[in-house]
Nucleic acid binder design. Sequence first.
DNA 1: ATGTGATATTCAAATATAATAATATTTGCA
DNA 2: TGCAAATATTATTATATTTGAATATCACAT
Lengths: 111, 111
Amino acid sequence: MRSVYRRVELLRVIAHPIRIRILEELTKGVKCVSDLEKFLDISQPNVSQHLAILRQYGVIDYYMDGRLRCYFLKDPIIPDILEILKKDYIEELPAPACCPVTKKGKYPGRR
Amino acid sequence: MRSVYRRVELLRVIAHPIRIRILEELTKGVKCVSDLEKFLDISQPNVSQHLAILRQYGVIDYYMDGRLRCYFLKDPIIPDILEILKKDYIEELPAPACCPVTKKGKYPGRR
DNA sequence: ATGTGATATTCAAATATAATAATATTTGCA
DNA sequence: TGCAAATATTATTATATTTGAATATCACAT
């Protein structure tokens, strides 16, 4: 069982609007830098910077096709996370049984 | 279907080692600030700051029990994310069929 | 070998985030 | 009413992240 805390780093890397868009795009298939550049509508160096970060943490990788760098998803956690982010949660979690009551002795395991 | 990008903000909020620990602890049940303070072994104001951030984004909420603020999980996405973070992924994603080949015409949907 | 297209790297400036220290607020109780 | 426990808020400082601009690299074609 992998430590959750080693994965927090991964979350930080994913938790950026541009990088999430890159990852979503890559779930659809291989993309080269200039395609991502058009899709994201940001500067080429900035695309490369984000790709470098994602690659540095093992989230993505690439292969060469001529002079194109073809990036693809590598970390299998990504599709799972993206799926959860898309999921529609309508209900909040059930509040603890004691919740609405503001009296003593209602905090389980204390007092 | 909720927008992924509204959720990126949520990811950013979660993607912090202390806040992840708080959330993990809260999956086990209601906790008050001083209990979290002991558990996390950081200053009380810092605990409150992290709790404030989590609450601000609707991730957690609290009820009062005497002078205790009893915090609990509110956003139902949290247990799902924590579960995925704990999951043990052994295999990388299958590389694209063209991957090892470094020749022209291997980038699907291009050239 | 040289030029060009595709992409990466580096640096600096702007901005955001985190932790610490100090102080304030709130609540129950004597 | 006034004190103390529990918690929140604010300001400050330190650090990290993001972006843009400029430049460098690398691979192929000529």
